[in-house]
Amino acid sequence: MKKLPARELGVGLVLFVLVLAVQLANPAFLRPENVRDLLIQCAPFAIMACGMTFVIILGEIDISVGSMAGLLAAALGTWASPSHGGRPLLDCVFGVLFLGLALGLVNGLLVVFARVPSIVATLGMLTVLRGVTELVLHGEWVTDLPPFIRQLGIGVSGGVPNPVLVALLVVAVSITLASLTPWGRRVYAIGSNPEAAKVRGLPVKQVKLAAFALMGLLTGVAVLVSAPQLSVVESGYGTGWELFVVTCVVVGGVSITGGRGSLWGVLLGVALLSIIRTALIFLRLGDQASYWERAIQGVLILTAVLGDRVSARRRAEVGA
């Protein structure tokens, strides 16, 4: 990774100002236990955002992840719960990972071999998978997740909550993958100029297929650490996550047309978007402020995106 590019500065700045303002208003905000909870809150989105970053750098997008998470959670629930499948831990974990991988592959195949634009293929999958989830659960929710599954979400290993540990691992692997491996370089090369990449003989199809499969796999990982945090697996699990994750990635400075962006920026994006809601609660504005919550969120996202662009222009002018 090069030095933190100025591209991420806009997001970093908004994040910093927000945290500072809330901390001044309510000193409880940066207490260790709240920081810990915030990290747990970010973990599943950080995991999925890693996968999404590769997909978007390749110039593609995956908006099926919300429904995919819903189906994977339903699968985890029905396999694990004693009143349904009653399967052991490893069966469930590998089952979810494998199913995630398979669903990701389906997306990839649709995009790469059936040549359906990714936004459309995954939009279709978003709808289909939510329907399948409803059919799988047929109006019942899973309410008896066994303790060994719950442990994945609420357990602590070596003083670090499991979701955070897994997220750190995923982030470390992803950053290595992006900056130190040939595969990572190919992702950037293909994303910034697909035609040139083809001419140079890069395996465009394989790389894209792998990126979608990775996205599916990581959605599985995210579900494994997030669904067990809660006691109930419902059919609406993961609704809206697709837009949240995409927003995190683009706010983090990844170019939606591909080729540019870094995982560091994406992590800042995840942090900013996850913190906004908590920050608003800590400001203790009372119930009337709740009605403006979404507007504030929207304006902050817009500021981060615009700020990035304005600073980029200034840099360009200075450089010229």
Partner: peptide
Amino acid sequence: HPLIVTLATMSAYFGLAEG
């Protein structure tokens, strides 16, 4: 990119309407 712009304004406009 319009995808980013309208993703952001989507949440701003819904929020404004709610507010």
